[in-house]
Design a protein around this nucleic acid. Sequence first.
DNA 1: ACAACGTTGGAGCT
DNA 2: AGCTCCAACGTTGT
Length: 637
Amino acid sequence: MRFATLALAALLLAACVPRPAHAASGDASYIGEVFMMATSFCPTGSVEANGATVAAASNPSLYALLGTTYGGTSTNFKLPNIKPQGSSALAAEVGGGSGGAMGATSIIWFRKGLRIHDNPALLAAAQGADHLCPLFILDPWFLQPDKIGVNRVQFLLESLADLDASFRARGSRLLVLRGKPQEVLPPVFKEWGVTRLCFESDTEPYAKQRDAAVRQLAEAAGVEVHSSVSHTLYDPQLLLARNGGKPPLTMQAFTKLADAVGPPPAPAADPPEKLPPLAPQAASLDAAASGVPSLADIGYPPAGTTPFKGGETAALARMADYLSDKDWVCAFEKPKGNPALFLRPATTVLSPYLKFGCLSPRLFHAKLQQIYSERSGKHTQPPVSLRGQLLWREFFTLCGSAVPNFDRMEGNPICRQIPWADDPARIQAWEESRTGYPWIDAIMAQLRRQGWMHHLARHSVACFLTRGDLWCSWEAGQAVFDKYLIDADWSLNAANWQWLSASAFFSQYFRVYSPISFGKQYDKNGDYIRHFLPALKDMPAKYIYEPWTAPLSVQQAAGCIIGKDYPRPIVDHAVVHKENMAKMKAAYDAGKAAAGAAAGAGGAAAGSAAAAAAGGDGASSSGSKAGAKPAKRARKS
DNA sequence: ACAACGTTGGAGCT
DNA sequence: AGCTCCAACGTTGT
């Protein structure tokens, strides 16, 4: 029997408090969910989502979940009012579908979530299915060599090969088709006799639009669609609703929100040892045309240069490796890591596995909590702890899902409008390790070669490109990172670039990373630079962060003439970072003036450009006493 | 109004 | 390694 047909649905809100055996997960933190029923009544333990007002005391668990998101007071709350979409057209299509007694054929459609552990969409697809077709579609959108580099694509193909091996061990295999999903899927639905399509929900703009289109096509073909949240610890939509429809904009506000919602769900159960076979029509596909391709097959160079290997197997091994040192796990503090370590990085390098979903954040979270609990509270805390890093990911994913134009300055309501210069030559020099600052150029070399750099190294180069030195738009840097990083994640990349350029989240633009002294603190001898910039490998440590200051005789002895074998500095940091600070100050002031003008105009948007141009401190009524020194701020001990 | 604080700054001093 | 000052942002809490 089919479930959740839209046509008959009376939409209900499940108010069931900890269900004893929640969908094979044994999850003690489960509170409830909104779901549709193909009936006109609600099952036991649930209430109809009809907008009714409920006393908080009568259902504290549901109140904890919903709060007054849909209205109410401190003593009562309102349920969402979700109307059945009773459409006879849908009813007819569902009735005419190929489901019913014929036997169920499911597709588990992989996009991210390239794993079999903690994969609720896979479990939903396998549930009661006679045939299960594991499918990945190579979307040309993600295979543009000029925009997406070989390392991340290699990582993806390795992840697919690993997934394929997991399915083969369970009597199946992964089918890899090529094309736009909106075009590939409809004929597949028909030819394979598909009755159910399951996938992991994805909050990126491209994915949202793609999935909405596919959902429509599936429903038109009588295919039941099931999506589940498993890319993040929390459901971003739920968090957003709990926060009144607006994303939190500080980590503290986010952490509070997450705490109020409670612990995230536990990982789902592992899939059975034996999975249903492919649909006959799928099984008869040519193996070469429906298997994992090589890089060359899809228009890429034959091999990448990253040392990091994709796949669930590698992800679990890497997690186990880093988690085996429990002292290290409990003492982890992000800002204290050494960005210059490259043989064994100072952080876990689990980010690419989380990006592709080779590793479940819920599994990683559960493992961390297990280790923390063994230490009875003796461990670091968010935002700097290892668990805190997962929360940053949640925070930025939530912002990315809720802020319009999150990957751009224009039309992005949380992004400061800053008049960056358009200077392709500077951007290219930065991308290609030709800034003349070895610390910066080495980091960019590591990016191009490995597809990964330490977090603080990313900060250094991002600050340098934008507000620190080159005064180029963060969007340009974002595109370069998106091209080369194996862990490039749309939301996280946009959020971090806004952070580092002091465009959003972070405002202390007077804190500028020095391209000379920052790296020196960690790596006095410059081993990191020598490794990634061979031209400088014999430069004495005294000069390696500022080789242009080395006497010519030293340059000759090192076999590296500045201006010939390695470039001169593209800008003078000591000069430009001060100039840029002043430009930031002006941009901030203009933004404040524009906001003040907009508010003064009764919310009308008109006139903001004029206000920005005026640039004066008309909006400032502070009248601060000149010369009066502010009270010294007590340092925290 | 004002102080404290914010995952990760730098320089110069002891 | 730790302190102070630099010149000074927005948010949050009192």
